[in-house]
């Protein structure tokens, strides 16, 4: 089989940039990512010709989702001591941010039984259960207290280190999520059922991952645009 012929049209403005940015932010080896993105871009162009832009775009997003685990695995496989040590400071930062958020919440909501239950998270839930009028605050508190600071800290660490901001954010968010869930689950006064706790925690995790992913994608997209321009210039020379 010979190589498929491709039209010689610059794709810089055509490939779905957010999907591309997502794949770039997962921290896999640069050459590996370039090979993957190059193939995706080339086939995307062909599919635009054959099936139209909408179909090609859907195909691209589907491929990006299917390929993301491989890139994340590549990053995990190459995770060295430097990456591991770079996670320590953000974890501490995330924990401090969690306490700061708790303190803010207590100041904002003086009726909370913060000290009665021992664990801040329990106070939000118990108060909501007793009054029934604090639902938005409960979700704000959970989402902001647990995973958003952790995910954001990981993302910032990735940006500073110029290595896999989204992967750092996801791993930190997941770590703090698991740790908090374990603490909360071990406390008898938290939720009436474990399923309810898992639901609320999963909601906050999903929200933080989504927010972190969008921020990371936007940042990487901006950087990628500059790199693309440079590469195209060098390719045309």
């Amino acid at each position: 089989m010979s190589a498929p012929s491709v039209p010689s049209v610059p794709i810089v403005e055509r490939v779905p940039r957010h999907a591309e940015a997502l794949l770039q932010s997962l921290g896999a080896d640069r050459d590996f990512v370039d090979d993957v993105l190059g193939d995706l871009a080339e086939e995307y162009l062909l599919r635009v010709r054959w099936d139209g832009a909408g179909s090609a775009r859907r195909w691209y997003y589907a491929q990006a989702l299917r390929t993301a685990p491989y890139l994340l695995r590549d990053w995990c496989r190459r995770l060295g001591p430097r990456d591991a040590s770079s996670l320590v400071v953000p974890i501490l930062w995330a924990l401090l941010a969690g306490f700061a958020t708790d303190a803010t919440m207590v100041a904002l909501l003086p009726r909370l039984t913060f000290f009665a239950t021992g664990i801040p998270l329990n106070a939000y839930i118990n108060h909501w259960k007793s009054t029934g009028d604090m639902m938005p605050w409960v979700f704000v508190a959970l989402a902001s207290r647990q995973t958003i600071p952790a995910g954001t800290a990981g993302w910032v660490a990735g940006l500073i280190g110029k290595r896999a901001p989204l992967a750092h954010g996801l791993i930190l968010a997941a770590t703090v999520f698991v740790a908090t869930s374990s603490i909360v689950a071990s406390h008898s006064a938290t939720f009436s059922t474990f399923a309810a706790q898992v639901f609320v925690n999963a909601t906050s995790l999903a929200a933080s991952c989504l927010a972190g992913g969008i921020f990371a994608a936007l940042w990487v997209q901006r950087r990628a645009s500059r790199e693309f321009a440079t590469r195209l210039r060098s390719a045309s020379v």
């Binding site: 491709v6 993105l37 190059g38 871009a41 440079t230």
Partner: peptide, 9 residues
């Protein structure tokens, strides 16, 4: 590098 691959080789 080729333009069809977004400037990638």
């Amino acid at each position: 590098p080729t333009p069809t691959r977004g400037g990638r080789a």
